[in-house]
Simulated assay, not measured.
Amino acid sequence: MNVHMDPSTEKKLNEHMGARPGYFKLFYDTEDCGCNGVLTLQIIDQPLDTDIKVEADACELFVDRQQQSLFDHTMKIIADPNYPSFTVRSDSSLFSSNVRIRDLRQN
């Protein structure tokens, strides 16, 4: 899986990461949502044993091994310039146009 990002997306992701260490994870959160899941960009302290590192332009990005099949081989993450959200898409699919960052770091 390859994930591409433009410079404005890279900048916005770096702003969310800040000076604290961490990793990004593309994740369908199904806990307490009553649906098939809400796509989120998580900031985590460490990847889990079940996480797989994907090729990404700007950052270290992971997906859960079981969720990898839900995504296309080549993806794009695009920052919304006017709103604190991102669009996740491929050439053939729109996965979500309102992806939020959820900071799960403990430090």
Score class of each variant (00 low, 15 high):
75 M>N: 06
10 E>S: 12
72 D>V: 11
81 P>L: 05
98 N>D: 13
10 E>K: 13
6 D>H: 05
37 G>F: 02
28 Y>I: 06
45 D>I: 02
11 K>Y: 15
103 D>L: 06
21 P>A: 00
33 C>S: 12
18 G>D: 04
20 R>G: 02
57 D>I: 02
100 R>Q: 13
99 V>H: 02
22 G>K: 00
1 M>Y: 08
46 Q>C: 07
53 K>M: 11
24 F>K: 01
83 Y>C: 14
28 Y>K: 01
24 F>T: 08
82 N>R: 07
14 N>M: 11
96 S>Q: 09
14 N>Q: 14
45 D>M: 05
56 A>V: 07
45 D>V: 03
23 Y>I: 04
22 G>V: 07
63 V>W: 00
47 P>F: 01
65 R>D: 14
99 V>S: 10
21 P>W: 00
37 G>K: 03
9 T>D: 05
15 E>V: 12
20 R>I: 03
59 C>V: 15
33 C>K: 10
104 L>H: 05
35 C>F: 01
50 T>Q: 12
5 M>F: 08
73 H>N: 15
95 F>R: 02
28 Y>C: 07
10 E>Q: 15
37 G>Q: 02
101 I>D: 10
70 L>K: 11
58 A>H: 06
99 V>G: 06
58 A>S: 15
84 P>C: 04
63 V>R: 01
13 L>I: 00
43 I>D: 00
14 N>H: 12
47 P>A: 05
63 V>K: 09
41 L>I: 04
56 A>M: 07
14 N>D: 11
32 D>L: 14
60 E>W: 03
26 L>C: 05
77 I>G: 08
59 C>T: 13
46 Q>Y: 13
91 D>G: 13
95 F>V: 06
